[in-house]
């Protein structure tokens, strides 16, 4: 697909960028007296149409975003890269529900590139062997492992590992440089978090080998070895990588690390603002919109819980526009 094939798509997304929320607005939103006032401000801004629950608002905004991308992008297969984490979460949900006889539909995350009907059916039958979706092998392996070991954690780790490896495959694909960079970043930051947890919990080598997935800019073997060793050595290695800023924030709190990851993605994609054609502006728009939705979600949830404005402001993500 040629970059100019994205002319329609990019123009449409640029038109939508004009309606994305600005930082000033979000800061004012943080200062809202209560949730009701914040929802009124969002209606006034044209971001939502009516007052509903926070979960419903986020669901609607994600649907809106996904519909827009599906209508605009010339090759819909390219959008699968945005579904990886949700896809593997849905596989995890199906495997868990297969164990506890629960209906997985209520727990699925969207957007997803999976055939959820088939996944649900397989979960009901407790048989993932003939599943014809990508990630099927991971689902089957995880289910069988959970059956044998009667340990749900091992199955979860296997599926999370599947997601990381899948992201790493996307990072190596020769499609969009920007998409590759973001996938690689997501892959590495997830591995860093896992390595730091393994180190903190004192897990063994088998666990580390199973949990830490393929890496993008990090040395996987070194990361595994250091995760099993002294905390200082692991930190000194990670602080010497391009992820040093995030790692130093992780030692303060995981929430700060998560925020750094989200903000860093916006840094990575921000150059696409000046790209006229190709998949890069789509990628940038998607992650920009994700951060916007996440920020509103954080603000509304915090207002509902009565968190102080200054504390909420610290959690608001960087914006694309």
């Amino acid at each position: 697909m040629k970059k100019t094939d994205y002319a329609y798509c990019v123009a449409r997304l640029r038109a939508n960028e004009a309606y994305m929320l600005k930082k000033d607005f979000l800061m004012k939103l943080c200062e809202s007296e209560n949730l009701d006032k914040a929802l009124s401000a969002l209606i006034e801004e044209g971001w939502i149409k009516e007052k509903t629950g926070i979960r419903e608002i986020i669901r609607l905004k994600n649907n809106e975003l996904w519909t827009l991308l599906n209508e605009s992008v010339p090759d819909k297969g390219e959008l699968n890269v945005f579904c990886v984490l949700n896809d593997f979460f849905n596989i995890k949900t199906a495997v868990k529900c297969a164990f506890c006889d629960a209906e997985p539909e209520n727990y699925y995350l969207y957007p997803t590139s999976l055939n959820l009907g088939e996944l649900t059916e397989r979960a009901r039958l407790r048989d993932f062997s003939s599943l014809k979706i990508y990630g099927a092998a991971t689902a089957e392996k995880a289910y069988n492992m959970a059956l044998i070991t009667e340990n749900g954690q091992s199955a979860e780790i296997l599926i999370d590992r599947g997601a990381i490896d899948c992201l790493c495959e996307y990072a190596a694909a020769k499609k969009s440089e920007l998409s590759n960079t973001v996938c690689g970043f997501l892959c590495d930051t997830a591995n860093i978090k896992i390595a730091l947890r393994i180190n903190a919990l004192g897990k063994g080598r088998d666990f580390a080998e199973e949990a830490i997935g393929n890496t993008f800019k990090l040395d996987r073997n070194r990361l595994i070895n250091l995760a099993l060793g002294e905390r200082e050595e692991l930190y000194s290695y990670l602080l010497a990588t391009v992820y040093s800023e995030g790692v130093s924030l992780y030692s303060e709190s995981t929430a700060l690390y998560e925020k750094w990851c989200d903000d860093r993605i916006i840094d990575l994609v921000s150059d696409a603002k000046y790209t006229a054609f190709g998949f890069d502006p789509v990628c940038a728009f998607y992650y920009g919109k994700q951060n916007e939705i996440k920020s509103v979600s954080i603000i509304l949830t915090a207002l509902q819980s009565g968190v102080a404005a200054d504390e909420i402001k610290e959690r608001v993500r960087a914006l694309y526009v």
Binding site: T4, A7, Y8, C9, V10, A11, R12, R14, A15, N16
Partner: peptide, 14 residues
């Protein structure tokens, strides 16, 4: 043709 494609993208929103 190229400008037309981009134009259609914009017009679909405005």
């Amino acid at each position: 043709g190229l400008v037309g494609e981009a134009g259609a993208g914009l017009l679909s929103e405005n």
